[in-house]
Design a protein around this nucleic acid. Structure first.
Lengths: 141, 141
DNA sequence: TCAATTAGTTGGGAACTACCAACGATTGGG
DNA sequence: CCCAATCGTTGGTAGTTCCCAACTAATTGA
């Protein structure tokens, strides 16, 4: 009758936070990225060159925070910020070669960490967990 | 090949945070509790009267933060703080009748919210999700 | 052309999380 | 009896997340 441990949300949160912290620690060492930086790079990997606008919406963060995130990524030369010739208010944020390499490295690191954090689950169970979480996530958009 | 959406940790985190926020909002309205306050009450429900010490360890928070949490709960008259006669350094934190009622209400509210957030899942799938998350959680302790 | 809108920028604030150091009271071991 | 350890308390800090207001440059529609 465990009041806390029987509540899906709480257990999920604990697992997610712990896993996130583990990943953050490793990402900081190896490709030298914060979680948000990686998230932005990952989004760019999937979407191609987009405006900061779109990127911010995709990650669910404020545009003002996206500016500062981009500043960091540009300082690290992982993305390039070019004005969109079709609409010079916009930028077209694109990955640099260095950025693409960072994503590849980061994905490897994350996979390694998840290999550990998800250790008690079989491959099938891991797939199920992701599928169920994705199903829940898709509804809340 | 969605780089972010295919990473279990990230999806889990998004779902958990959203679900948590929804619960926090509702708990604030109805029994008038924060998430941490509820967590402490829930832990007390399961463990019975314990020292602040133990309670803090159970929730994974610092003892100094537990002091402040207890202050709030006592102000709301949801818990009672008595010295342990066996060791007068310790307290024995116990639920008041009001506290027990608050837990009952809170659990109902949480169940209602999860009914919504977990809507896309069948009852079986919800059980599976909780079981898998618990399995992962138990290893990381 | 002028007003309204949009993209990005700057600065900052509020709430929360997670710590840490120092201290008084109390206890238990030697 | 005294020292070390423990429990709770106070005060404080650093970092994160999330959000808002005001502003510039550029674009679009009337």
């Amino acid at each position: 009758m465990e009041t806390l441990a029987g509540t899906t949300t709480f257990v999920l949160h604990k697992v997610a936070v712990a896993s996130r912290r583990a990943i953050a620690a490793r990402l900081a060492e190896r490709p030298g990225l914060t979680l948000w930086e990686y998230a932005a790079l990952a989004e760019l990997t999937d979407q191609g060159a987009v405006a900061q606008n779109v990127l911010a919406a995709g990650l669910g963060i404020d545009t003002s925070d996206m500016v500062r995130l981009m500043d960091e990524l540009i300082a690290k030369e992982l993305v390039a910020r070019d004005r969109d010739p079709a609409d010079r208010r916009r930028y077209r944020i694109g990955l640099t070669a260095k950025g693409r390499r960072a994503v590849v490295t980061a994905r490897k690191v994350i996979a390694e960490v998840e290999q550990v954090t998800l250790q008690p689950l079989s491959a099938t169970e891991r797939a199920t967990l992701l599928a169920l979480a994705a199903k829940v996530h898709s509804v809340n958009n």
